[in-house]
Design a protein around this nucleic acid. Structure first.
Length: 436
DNA sequence: ACCCGTTTTCCTGCTT
DNA sequence: GAAGCAGGAAAACGGG
């Protein structure tokens, strides 16, 4: 058995090609050698801070948009950068360095090593393959890492994903597990080429970081570990992790709307009828959500003053400060930027989950798709939150709504304030489509 | 670089 | 008068 150590200095070195590794020989029954990347958590979630351009933002404050983002991630899967997929403990030999497989990274990785994003992509792949109605998915059940997934019994999977889709997932998972079953003790040593590739990945991942800057951020060690194959061995239990997550503080100073969503998030958004949903799902962005521990409960970002400043027509340019993290986010997302949820989809999703929307909107006529804004400004705020636009108002939102008339996504409802109707070009709201 | 689709912003006039 | 509606105009912005 060999233990390989890549020291922290490796990443402080301005010349990463000098990565060194040492071998120590020990007798061990360990089944594998894992490359563990400890990325400091402040780095992981600080970008979220920057993204949240709201007056006041708490980690738990934007639940609806976060949940919707999760839903988006499922509907429009976004390929993740290698390193961000590696925040748990992937086996180096299992990393798809080419990333050319259209199936996604998960296909090249032992399911036990999957990140939550990998699990999402895997589920998304099967949704596509089986033409399963993704709107029936409970996103909370999709938000688990590979270790937890592998530790989940068939019965539980069936319960989570339904008989047919659950069966399919279970079958495929078993196949994938079997594929990697004999491979765990192999590739314990990094070859020079693998080290080169690792260097490249690190460089790609932190293009704005150079040599010494990487040091404080990355602390990479290679550890010898046994991969648990049993439920009881699973250290990072999905259920433990989420049920132990702290509840949002009540005095965070966010608006009442958000509070109402905080209090309503115990259930699943996409599948509100699911009984044992206990996930908080407060991970705003799956890419940065691989944190094994809770983070501080409140983060406040002050908004710039001067909102009443007179300005010209049209949309002002977005602020371009903080190039560092911003650039990282932009470059990472630009590869395959997801098609964001459209406004009408956002509205629809609020409507089809009435127990989650806390009286923001209601159906006037469910069959005909007629609905009404009950808290118009609150909905606008929420929409703005989703679009990282703290100055969204109902007036602006309604203008966008009116543009839908022409495209027949919405139809006019004359004489009734705050009332709209879904048009023939909208989908996903009908009882036949949602199942409830 | 340019086009296109989808907003976002601002505005005027009208209706409830 | 306030809130909302209607829709023109211009601009932002991401994707192709």
């Amino acid at each position: 058995m060999q233990t390989l150590q890549v020291h922290q200095e490796t990443f402080q070195n301005t010349e990463p090609r000098r990565i060194t590794h040492t071998h120590t020989h020990t007798h061990s029954q360990a089944t594998g050698l894992l490359l563990t990347q400890h990325v400091h958590w402040d780095f992981i979630w600080r970008p979220n801070l920057h993204l949240a351009n709201t007056t006041e933002f708490t980690m738990a404050s934007s639940e609806l948009s976060l949940i919707l983002n999760n839903a988006n991630a499922n509907l429009y899967p976004e390929p993740q950068h290698h390193l961000l997929c590696m925040t748990r403990t992937p086996h180096l030999s299992e990393i798809n360095f080419n990333n050319s497989n259209t199936m996604g990274t998960w296909d090249q990785v032992n399911p036990q090593m999957w990140t939550r994003q990998n699990v999402l992509e895997w589920i998304g792949f099967h949704v596509e393959e089986s033409r399963f109605d993704a709107s029936l998915l409970n996103m909370n059940y999709c938000n688990m890492d590979g270790l937890t997934l592998c530790a989940t019994s068939k019965e539980t999977l069936l319960g989570m994903f339904g008989q047919r889709f659950g069966e399919r997932l279970h079958q495929n998972l078993e196949n994938l597990k079997a594929r990697y079953a004999n491979d765990l003790s192999e590739n314990a040593v990094l070859s020079e080429s693998e080290l080169d590739i690792l260097e490249n990945i690190l460089q790609d991942s932190f293009p704005f970081m150079h040599g010494p800057n990487l040091g404080p951020l990355l602390e990479t060690v290679v550890v010898q570990t046994t991969i648990p194959t049993d439920n009881s061995e699973s250290k990072y239990s999905y259920f433990d992790e989420y049920t132990n997550q702290q509840t949002p503080e009540s005095d965070h100073g966010y608006d009442s709307l958000t509070e109402s969503f905080q209090s309503s998030q115990a259930g699943s958004f996409l599948n509100p009828s699911s009984p044992e949903s206990s996930s908080s799902s407060s991970d705003s962005d799956p890419e940065y959500s691989e944190k094994p521990f809770s983070v501080s409960s409140k983060i406040t970002v002050k908004q710039e003053p001067g909102k009443n400043q007179k300005r010209g027509r049209g949309r002002p340019p977005k602020p371009r400060d903080n190039e560092g993290y911003e650039h990282f986010i932009q470059s990472k997302k630009s590869k395959h930027a997801p098609r964001g949820t459209h406004l009408w989809e956002f509205i629809r999703d609020i409507l089809i989950h009435p127990e989650q929307n806390q009286g923001l909107m209601k159906w006037e006529d469910r069959r005909d798709g007629i609905f009404k804004f009950l808290k118009s400004e609150a909905v606008a705020q929420l929409w703005g939150q989703k679009k990282k636009n703290s100055s969204m108002t109902y007036e602006k939102l309604s203008r966008a709504m009116r543009y839908y008339y022409k495209r027949e996504i919405l139809e006019r409802v004359d004489g009734r304030r705050l009332v709209y109707k879904f048009g023939k070009n909208s989908t996903g709201w009908r009882v036949e489509e949602t199942g409830y």
